[in-house]
Design a protein around this nucleic acid. Sequence first.
DNA 1: AGCAACAGGATTAACACATC
DNA 2: GATGTGTTAATCCTGTTGCT
Length: 324
Amino acid sequence: MRADRLVSLVLLLRQRGHLTAATLARELEVSTRTVLRDIEALSAAGVPVYAERGRHGGFALLPGFQTELTGLNHDEAIALLAAGSGRGEQVFGLGSALASAMRKVAGALPESHRATASDAAQRFLIDPETDLLSRRLATEEVPATTMSEVRRAVLAGRKLRIHYAAADQTPQWRTVDPIGLVTVRDRGYLLATRSGTERTYRLSRVLAAEELPEPAQRPNRVDLDRIWRERCAQFLSGGDQITALVRVNPARREDLVSTALAVRAEDPDADGWLRLEVTFQDSRHAEWALWQLTTDAEALAPQSLRTSLRDSAAAIAARYGAPT
DNA sequence: AGCAACAGGATTAACACATC
DNA sequence: GATGTGTTAATCCTGTTGCT
């Protein structure tokens, strides 16, 4: 534990140049006295750390002192920074370990690349809380060459030409201004603008991609998590989509979820069934999905959906009820 | 310009507590 | 008991500010 902290202390000083004992204590989550002891230990170990007393004082490393984190290339550093830039700090109680690791990764990069890598990392969002599609899908493969082209354009801030196959449409070439990349479980999305309009593209539907030399029109700083949440909310409330409150037999839950567009809430119901808030493409889609589940599901709301299902059932009963 | 008061920060010491 | 850490207090150093 202490050895880790000593390394973190050196890297903090290396990155930030000059820090007071109080600041170091806050960063390392120890008392200032412990920081002073650590400084003393580093000094005894030969690390050229020195103190400047008085106002504007603090601790610093002698210029030219270097630490090495070998075997880490630029792409690896970006990948690690991206992994640590999202909600990673909340995962498994490893917040301080992750923060320490991120300092080491950032510290390992050459001074000239550090800002670029940190800026690049904010263009990636890994496993946000919100998902566009809650249903489970098979892993979506994206050809390495396509992915590489998309990633390069996102990182370099250049326009991107993609051959995109939207659902039920003939694939078309489009030129977009990439903002960032988001992965959700097995799926990847490209957040971009096209002619100033916000767009979200499924990476698995990008058949080919080509980075263009022109710079993309995009803000210098982005909050990818916020943008993603906004687009999810927009998606879930848009078009002719309808959200139904459904009771379902747990044995058929996957069948329901696999046909739905999204599932927003899920709670156990009184008799062992599940109560789900499910979004469908439109009312016909909802009716079809619930029809497949026969008596293993019941739409509680909206009333129009219940009425449609009842009318369909009555029509079927009338058709087959009468003797031939 | 010179001086004193003040503020901010480092330094040192003593002691207590927790863990191994 | 050794080690690591936290708390408290006194002291020293240095830069800033205001006054003469």
